[in-house]
Each structure stands twice: as structure tokens, then as C-alpha cells.
Amino acid sequence: MNILWDFDGTLFDTYKVFTDVMHEVLGEDIHKDDIFKELKISFSHATTFFELTNKQILEFKEKEKTVSPELKQPFPYVEDVLKKAKLNVIMTHKPRVEVQTILDFYNWNHYFVEIVAGDDGFKRKPDSASYEYLHNKYDLDIAIGDRVLDIIPAKKIGLHTCLFQNEAKGADFYLHTYKDFFDKVRI
């Protein structure tokens, strides 16, 4: 199986870190659950929802970069899926250097034949250009993400879709844990 992966919230459990950092930036008045909920839609959505200034957005990005990769752990059992896949690619909005830092820390570079990162010049999801590029090059079977934003471009180009830890309508498959991947995802 040839798999396109989202990065944050799909391969790595990073939203706890994002939530904590945004909570620091916003202050104590906003509950972390509310921050998490808005971040899971998208970072740009959360910045608009909470009315962050450009200065606060920069502060968030700088603080988040300083958090150790050790606190951005891979989800349990995801490595089992990576090992069994024929090939894996990543499409993320995260800057390449940040992706590489985390992959280097966990020694996971060898699992991915290509990474399309946020600073590679493609339009942001839900635009499908980056997915089309990867699909044309690698004949992908499925796209896995944690947000509807991750599956919209996959649906547009005819890929199977899987939402991870998200029950929103529209995906072909749903997983709460990667332990169930090979039982639930059949292509």
C-alpha cells in the first residue's frame, strides 16, 4: 500500500504541545480544551478565532520551535504501519526543517520516500496540487490525516481516505488507534 500521511496529529502527537504553547501566548483566561478544538480545525482558523496579532503568531511559532522533539512523540503503532507499507510520503504545512528535526530525532527518515513541506511552494490544503504531484509520482492508494482538511484534496483526486482520531463525515475509513489499521483499512 502506498500511503500519503499528514504529519501533525497524524504521525506525531503534536497538538498537546501546540495547545500548551498557544495557551501561554493567549494567557490563562482561555481553556486548553477550547484551544485544542480550534487548532484541530487548522492553525490559521485558530489564529483568526482567537484574534491573535501578528506578534502573537510569531511568538507562538518561535516558542513551538524550541519544544524538544521528545515531547512530540509518534502515535502508538504508527511505526508498524510505516514498516508494512510499500511506500510512505508526507504532505504537511509544517516547515521542512521542523519536520526533519522530528524525523531525525526518532530516526524515521528512511520510512519516507518524499516529503512535501509547507515551505515547498505548494498552495495550502485543501488545494489538491501537492496531493496530485505526489500521486502522479508514486501512484498512491490512500491519504491519512487527522482533519477533514487532510482528506478533501485526496477525495478530489480519487484516493481512499482515512481520518485518524476524528469521526467527521466524509472519510472512507476511521481509526482511533493504528493498532487496528490492518483490520479496518482494506484496499
Rank of each mutant, 00 (worst) to 15 (best):
L87Q: 07
P153H: 13
V81W: 02
E132L: 14
Q56T: 00
M1R: 12
I157M: 06
K179L: 08
L82Q: 05
L58H: 14
T66S: 07
L71S: 14
L149T: 09
I35N: 07
P126E: 04
H110D: 10
T48Y: 12
F173V: 02
Q165R: 15
V97M: 03
F122G: 11
N54G: 09
T101M: 07
V17M: 08
K37S: 12
E132W: 01
A171D: 03
A46V: 06
Y77E: 11
T101A: 11
I102E: 07
Q56P: 04
M91C: 14
H160A: 13
K63W: 03
T101Q: 11
Y77K: 13
F43L: 13
V67K: 09
A85W: 00
A85N: 00
D104Y: 01
R124V: 06
V21R: 09
Y111V: 01
E64N: 15
F43Q: 06
K40P: 01
F173K: 03
D34W: 00
F18R: 04
Y15E: 11
I57S: 08
C162T: 07
L11H: 04
T48Q: 15
Q73N: 10
T92E: 00
P76Y: 02
K61P: 00
Y106T: 02
S68G: 11
E167T: 15
V148A: 12
I30L: 04
L175V: 09
W5N: 08
V21L: 07
Y178N: 03
L134C: 09
F18G: 02
K137H: 06
L159F: 05
R124F: 06
G121Y: 09
I3Y: 09
D146E: 08
E98D: 12
G158R: 12
T53W: 01
G27W: 01
G121C: 12
D172H: 15
L87R: 12
K156G: 12
H31R: 15
A171T: 05
K40W: 00
A154K: 07
K156Y: 09
D34C: 06
S128F: 10
K40V: 03
E28F: 10
L159Q: 05
I144E: 05
N88T: 01
A168D: 15
L52Y: 00
D120F: 01
T161E: 11
L71Q: 12
V148K: 15
Y15D: 11
K61A: 06
V21P: 11
N2T: 03
G27I: 05
V116F: 02
D80M: 08
R147D: 05
I41F: 03
P126R: 12
K55N: 12
K123D: 10
E62L: 00
K63E: 05
V97N: 10
G158W: 05
D183T: 13
K63G: 01
W108Q: 11
